[in-house]
Design a protein around this nucleic acid. Sequence first.
DNA 1: CTGGGAACAGACAGACCGGTCTGACTGGCA
DNA 2: TGCCAGTCAGACCGGTCTGTCTGTTCCCAG
Lengths: 204, 204
Amino acid sequence: MAAETSAAANRAARQATEHARLSARERLLAAANELFYEEGVNTVGIDRVIERAGVAKATLYSAFGSKDELIRAYLEQRFQARREHTLSGLNPVETAREKLLAVFDVLSESFAKPHYHGCAFVNAAAEARPGSPIETAVDGYRGWMRELLTQLAREAGAADPELLAWQLHLLYDGASVSARMDHTPQAASPARAAAEALISAALD
Amino acid sequence: MAAETSAAANRAARQATEHARLSARERLLAAANELFYEEGVNTVGIDRVIERAGVAKATLYSAFGSKDELIRAYLEQRFQARREHTLSGLNPVETAREKLLAVFDVLSESFAKPHYHGCAFVNAAAEARPGSPIETAVDGYRGWMRELLTQLAREAGAADPELLAWQLHLLYDGASVSARMDHTPQAASPARAAAEALISAALD
DNA sequence: CTGGGAACAGACAGACCGGTCTGACTGGCA
DNA sequence: TGCCAGTCAGACCGGTCTGTCTGTTCCCAG
C-alpha cells in the first residue's frame, strides 16, 4: 500500500518501453472492456483477457484478485465513462426539457457505433449469479441514471417527476434492447419521439 | 418419425409407472425451463438438467442431439406459451385500443410471479454466441410481438401504426428490464400509463 | 554493482464442460 | 417365451475453466 506512492508513479513512465505506456492494470481493463462487452463476461475466459492485454496471468491476479473483481472493475469503468459522456452531452443544452431529450441523442450515438452490442449492464445482469458483485455495480448505474432523469424532470416542472423519470427510463432501456435485438441503430428515434410526447403530457 | 405413431402413444401411458406420466422429452423441457430461465443457459450444465429431469444423459442426446438444440427448444416452448397466454388475455377485451393496453396487464401478471427473472429472450440473447440458433428463436418471438402490436395499432386507427407499435414495444421491453433490474414488479404500471398517453396522442 | 520488486511465460491443479459409449434393465408385442 | 426399442446409471474422453505457483528476466534505487 505505502509502496504505491513512488512505485506506481514511475511505473507509468517505465512502461513506455513496452508495447504501450499504459500500466498492466489499465491494459487489462481495456482488454476486458472489449472482450467482456462483445462476447459476455462468462463466455470470455481469463486466458483470452491476458492474451489481449499482453500480460501474465499472475499480474492479473495480483492486480484484481479474482475474475469477479475484474468484472466489477470493468462495469465500474463503463459506468464512469457513460456518466461523463452523458453529462458532457447534456452540458451545452439549455433547458431541462431539452436535456431530457438530449439523453436520447447521446444514446443514439452509442447505437451508431460499429460494434454496439446492447447495454453492458443488461447483458452483465443476465449472466450474473445472484449475489455476485455484478449486481451492486448494476444497481449503482441504474440508480444514477434514474436520479439524473428525476432531477431533470423536476426542473422541467413535471407534475410527477418520479413517474416521468421512470417512464423515460423505460424508453431508454427499451431502446437499448431494441437496438440490439432488432438489429437496428435507429431505435433511439422512436424512443425520443415518445419521450417528447410523455414530457409534453406531463407538463400540462 | 414413423415409429412415433404407436411408440410415442403408449409411452405416455407406460410412463405412468415412473415419477410422472410425462415423457422424457417433456420432463427435460420442464427442467430446462426452470434452470435455464433462473440461472442462464450458459451457467447451467447438462448434468444439472438431466438430474432435475430424472433422465439419463443418453436420453437427452437421443431426444435433442445437442445442448444448443435443447436451448432452442426451450426458447421455442417459451415463445409458444407466451403467445398463447398473451392472446388469451387479449381475447375477452373488446376494442383494439383496449387490447393494446391489455398487453401490459398480461405483462404485469408475469412480473408478479414469485421467481420472475426478466425476459427469457433478452437474457438468452445476452448469452448467445453470434450465429447461434438462439438468435433465430429470439427473432421469431420479437417478430411476432411487433406484428401483434402493429396490427392492433392499425385496427385502433393510429396515424402511424408501425411507429406506435415500435414505441409500445420499447415500453414493453423497458418494463421487463426495469422489473428485473430495479427489483420491482410494479414496472408494468408506468409502462401502461405511458402507453395510454402515446396511444391517445397517436389517434389524434 | 547489487538487491528487490514487478512483470514475464507457462506448467500445474482441480473442477466442470459437452458429448460418446457401454452394459444392464424393463415393459410391450409377437 | 423371446425379442427389441427405449431408458437407465455412470464411466470416460478431450477440452476449457479459474486460480496457484515456479522460475526467469528486467529495471530501478541505493
